[in-house]
Design a protein around this nucleic acid. Structure first.
Lengths: 207, 207
DNA sequence: CTCTCCCAATGACAAATGTCATCAGCACTG
DNA sequence: CAGTGCTGATGACATTTGTCATTGGGAGAG
């Protein structure tokens, strides 16, 4: 499908120069792949994508400005022809779910080899999908988040250890209401208190 | 110093295959550097170092088994001739201090280019030192940890949001004592409670 | 030897937090 | 339209946590 005369145009987005540069160098060995743009942040990735119209965007999950899934969501509407895939260091189950519903076609941990990554880029470009088996298993066994929108939102605000009063102020809610929601969230996650609940939600990629 | 006939022997340790492989490929372009061993974990890095006796060990800070600084400390006694350097994604001030006192000669964020990394490897091999200016500035302005041994230890036990009773049990201390130490720690860090204190200590690399 | 600092503990008190019952509005579903 | 579930709030209560004063032992410095 990918003719010798028309290499796959790839966008690389990762905030770590070292990895991005190294990756670009490795992919350049593949005759049918061509890195046409690089970016070090979420917004930059979007701008580069608009300017260079890649066939496949390889996005790091953790980036300043906007994370990989957010970028993928934007790309889906702005550049429908561009396939997206996520590369990540530590993949939580929830992240995979968010990514898939954002139209991401590949989800790969950074523990794969460059060879393998190149193959996956080709697969994704050809319209296929690839999800790391390990992560997929985790995601399936983990299930969906039992938390409601507000509960999740308040857990996020509680994530830095702030007292209830501060959370209530930042959420423009009554302190009593905040306590109720956080109590409910902790109960759903079988946590002893809201701080432990934050940890659990984080580990599942639910926050 | 590094003659054409004797390239610098390098050990690469990073748990992410993708980065390690890419890095190895990039460094192979430099005629005077030769990657003689790779490792994906702390213990493996030690074993590889003993087997291949590299001139310079490039260690990722976050690795399973044993972190980069721990490995560097062990290397210092087991292979005194081997220079060590740390590469890290997010470098906290405290980590830099720990690394330097472990005899590490290079401390570099992953945001540098491969070119630059190669230069730094040469510098370190020649007996020089290199510390990222940004990280150095942070470390200097941050100062030392004001926490005592026990305070730090108890903050670690409190890191997962466990209630006081559980922390006391795990530390084999009286609950009252635990509260006293955590209260003192929070006060020293100007935190509103122990959970916020954990966050602050983490951000400084003090835990 | 005295002074200081860390460790460990206790008791008391105030403040924050977790838990529960209850209520009301709103949106959606069958 | 009745039922369900999310949201937002209040009040009461028990528990947990934070704070402070105080004590005592041990290690190290001057």
């Amino acid at each position: 499908m990918n003719g010798q005369g028309e290499p796959v145009r790839v966008l690389l987005a990762d905030d770590e120069h070292l990895i991005r540069g190294a990756l670009a160098a490795l992919l350049s060995f593949e005759d049918d792949l061509r890195v046409v743009a690089e970016a070090a942040s979420g917004p930059e990735a979007l701008a580069m994508a608009r300017a260079h119209r890649p066939d496949v965007a390889v996005l790091d999950l953790e980036m300043p400005g906007a994370d990989g899934v957010t970028v993928a969501t934007s790309l889906r509407s702005q550049l429908p022809g561009c396939r997206t895939m996520i590369v990540t260091g530590h993949g939580r189950p929830g992240h995979l779910k968010r990514a898939l519903s954002a139209g991401v076609r590949g989800f790969v941990p950074k523990t794969v080899s460059a060879q393998r990554l190149a193959e996956i880029i080709r697969t994704v470009h050809a319209g296929g999908r690839y999800v790391d088996p390990e992560l997929a298993a985790d995601a399936i066994s983990a299930g969906d988040s039992p938390l409601t929108t507000r509960e999740t939102q308040l857990l996020e605000l509680a994530a830095d250890g702030a007292p209830i009063a501060e959370i209530a102020e930042r959420a423009a809610l009554s302190p009593g209401t905040v306590r109720n929601y956080l109590s409910a969230a902790a109960a759903k996650l079988s946590a002893e208190n809201r701080h432990a609940a934050v940890r659990i939600a984080r580990s599942q990629g639910w926050l």
